[in-house]
């Protein structure tokens, strides 16, 4: 494992911790898209099915279990425990518009036509667009709390760091996987507009507010 990959994983873990702490400490999930969180839970469950069949390393197993468990916990907090604070009026993105095309794409473009491999490919495609309901929610309300912005920045950085990891692995190990690279580029590009606002506003102590 190289430093980009490790930083990417840590950034991903940090994003999840920030989100969980925000919801737990404020007893509220206002400003967070439950739709995106459902999509992330689907992403981790369908991607990490190999937990049952393949042992890679203790690190790998630990992280996979953490990602599955925390994604389910976040959905539970949003839809059960702190349901009253959930911003469902603004969280109106239709997730079937993401689920169906990514499933069809996974059936068409994959490394191997087996159930586990297709679900893995589906999870890669779905992850690349899973943040759209969240970005849609931010654009609808026109603003995001700073803690939500920190969460989005850490989450966006994670796949960006993975891109550097893939460049490194391509030159170092001659390893590459076009499916994850293309999906990773799409995923990172979707955050670019947000990254710009984060750097120009949130880091200068201002609230993330979209221009009217």
């Amino acid at each position: 494992m190289n430093v980009f990959r490790l930083l990417g994983d840590l950034s991903h873990l940090l994003a999840i911790i920030v989100l969980l702490l925000k919801i737990w400490k404020t007893r509220s999930c206002a400003g967070i898209s439950g739709k995106s969180q459902i999509l992330f839970a689907i992403v981790y469950i369908t991607r990490y099915l190999d937990l049952i069949t393949t042992y890679i390393s203790a690190y790998n197993m630990f992280m996979k279990i953490i990602f599955i468990a925390t994604s389910i916990a976040i959905v539970y907090l949003m839809y059960v425990k702190f349901k009253a604070t959930y911003d469902h009026n603004h969280d109106t993105f239709r997730i079937e518009f993401l689920l169906l095309p990514t499933l069809v794409l996974a059936l068409l473009i994959n490394h191997e036509f087996t159930i586990v491999e297709i679900l893995w490919t589906f999870s890669i495609y779905l992850e690349s667009v899973a943040i759209l309901p969240q970005l849609f929610l931010v654009s609808k309300t026109g603003e995001a709390e700073s803690i939500t912005s920190h969460y989005l920045f850490a989450l966006g950085s994670y796949r960006g760091l993975y891109l550097l990891n893939w460049i490194y692995r391509y030159y170092g190990e001659n390893y590459y996987d076009l499916i994850v690279i293309v999906a990773g580029i799409v995923q990172t590009v979707l955050y670019c507009d947000f990254f710009y606002l984060y750097i120009t506003k949130v880091l200068k102590g201002k609230k993330l507010q979209l221009p009217a």
Binding site: D9, D50, T54, I56, N60, H111, E117, W120, Y162, N165
Partner: peptide
């Protein structure tokens, strides 16, 4: 072609 049986990345 990547090894589809062993996925070490997350």
């Amino acid at each position: 072609k990547p090894d589809v049986q062993s996925k070490d990345e997350l």
